[in-house]
Design a protein around this nucleic acid. Structure first.
Lengths: 313, 313
DNA sequence: TATTTACTATAAACATCGGTTATAGTATAA
DNA sequence: TTATACTATAACCGATGTTTATAGTAAATA
């Protein structure tokens, strides 16, 4: 292994600048220093890394390969340094959570409240992003914990279930009556028939939920007359309540509306499978004490509700 | 950003050795040199990285965080160096492919043959491993190309479809007759009934195929009287041909057996959705010329069969 | 309790490696 | 042709990181 890692730093800078002189400016050292450093690295690795010309330099094929790995390496290190900086600025009580906007409002905020009350000294940062981005951020170490729906391909993560969610289809009574009128019948309609005559409202494609629902729809061979895509669950619920069509929403988030009859849940012959939502964290990465505290907090919580749950409510 | 990356190398070594003295031995420099280097790094980062004692050193919480990132960095770099070494040893014509054992025999080998014939100078290395491992290897740069079934969560990859596969259930005629006898009827049996009375043979849990089939089974509410798990598709087919039960296999791989009647395909009301199999590669990573050549080769291939396919065969 | 052992830290001397300045060479643009 | 914007080479030099030597500390052993 190359012993002098400063050479990699120089290599990295030159490759980005595509130009030895400007790399020199960026690194605040002289042009010949860089020139020599690159030559040295090439000698040590026994590989030509750049094509030189009077217009600058260009990575060779091998240089390109190396650059990719070196870039990763430096990103990793600067990430590490950022983490340390964060600790200094904000103290050790710092916790960053990645979560989708849907889950943020309805799941994270409620369960976060008791933790924040008990641990006011712990700074919490929340990044709303897609579940996929959250998983990426976890892998890069950009967030400590993610709140996401369980999927396959989570081998790299430890998953701590928090709640189970059930996707259902809802609409207003008015809307459904409307559909019935259109078909000229008073007889009870099948789920599939209602569906075929309705406007279906879903989250847009980026959403994991949407992918999940799409799979269900294709498996059950369900198609709607019309489709509307919406970017947030809140909007989706609003659209449903104004009687625009049938929306696919998470049951727990519309309990009130179901209770007072503003929304009706469509009866389905085969319901959409339930999904686990929970905290995920990289099982290789080390944790700050406060992250551990957070996880313990919810592990206890889960234990308690598991015990008291059956008797309560 | 810390300017002296050699300090990180020393830090990395010390953290692994948990001991300054043995790190000194490993790095072939003196113990005081290390001791000072670590102090310097701590000063620069403004962070205590190790607890010292007369028994050695231990990472602090912050040190642990940093170590995680630094480890990543060095793994990346040594990966890069290995790639270069590979190129030197084997010349530029080197291509490594990750593939599951199932797909290797039935998919990769046949389609690889023409490529190898046309490009005898290109060294090819094939690693048989699970699809998950293949994706990991792609991300680490350990293999250039993976041959895997398409799934969700492939945002990081470019996917080049090669064929479509269809999972089906097969058994010998003898076996099915047997099942009928047991139920004391000559009437044609439903798929579900036959299933409930049979031994079902599947690949074991690690396999992506299995996960796919499991999902189907639970959605269709299918259960078998007995289950056998097998580690390879070859074995599975053998088991089916000896009349041990109903096996779930990939249709294209048993065409001969279906043609000459050694195996029968069970008719299903809802068939298992088809799956795409194809080459995947990281869309961020650069490619050696020969990797590009490989991809182009199959892109052309796909183009040709798409054009000539309808008229041919 | 004394002694040995296995660590890390500090100090001073010193050599090396990587930096600087100065200059030459080369391709492209004006 | 000249000007410009690059990279390469040479000779020199000094900071940085090395070494040796020594001290300090905690645990293990007698």
């Amino acid at each position: 292994m190359e012993q002098n890692f400063n050479l990699y730093h120089i290599f990295y800078t030159v490759a980005r600048c595509k130009n030895i002189s400007s790399a020199a400016r960026e690194l605040y050292i002289s042009q010949p220093a860089i020139s020599k450093a690159i030559s040295r690295l090439e000698t040590n690795l026994n590989t030509r890394l750049f094509f030189r010309s009077s217009r600058g330099v260009r990575l060779t094929e091998e240089g390109e390969l190396l650059f990719h790995q070196v870039e990763n390496a430096f990103l990793s290190i600067s990430h590490g340094e950022e983490q340390l900086a964060r600790i200094h600025k904000l103290g050790m009580g710092y916790l960053s959570i990645g979560v989708s906007s849907t889950l943020c409002k309805y799941v994270l905020l409620p369960i976060l409240r008791p933790f924040v009350r008990e641990n006011p000294h712990i700074q919490i940062s929340i990044s709303c992003q897609s579940s996929y981005e959250t998983m990426q951020a976890l892998e890069k170490g950009a967030v400590d914990i993610g709140l996401i729906g369980a999927t396959d391909h989570m081998e790299a993560f430890t998953f701590l279930p928090v709640m189970e969610i059930q996707d259902i289809f809802v609409a207003t009574r008015t809307y459904l009556d409307h559909v019935k009128e259109r078909i000229f019948t008073d007889a009870p309609l099948s789920f599939k028939t209602v569906f075929a005559e309705s406007t279906l409202m879903l989250l847009n494609k980026e959403n994991i939920t949407r992918q999940y629902v799409d799979r269900y729809l294709s498996q059950e061979n369900l198609t709607a007359a019309q489709m509307i895509e919406v970017s947030s669950l809140d909007l989706l619920i609003e659209f449903a309540k104004t009687g625009l069509g049938i929306a696919c929403v998470i049951r727990d988030f519309v309990l009130d509306d179901l209770a007072d009859g503003r929304l009706l849940q469509l009866k389905m012959p085969v319901s959409i499978p339930k999904r686990q939502v929970g905290f995920a964290y990289l099982n290789t990465a080390p944790h700050l004490a406060c992250v551990q505290k957070f996880l313990d907090f919810f592990a206890d919580e889960a234990g308690r509700t598991a015990k008291t749950g059956p008797q309560g409510t």
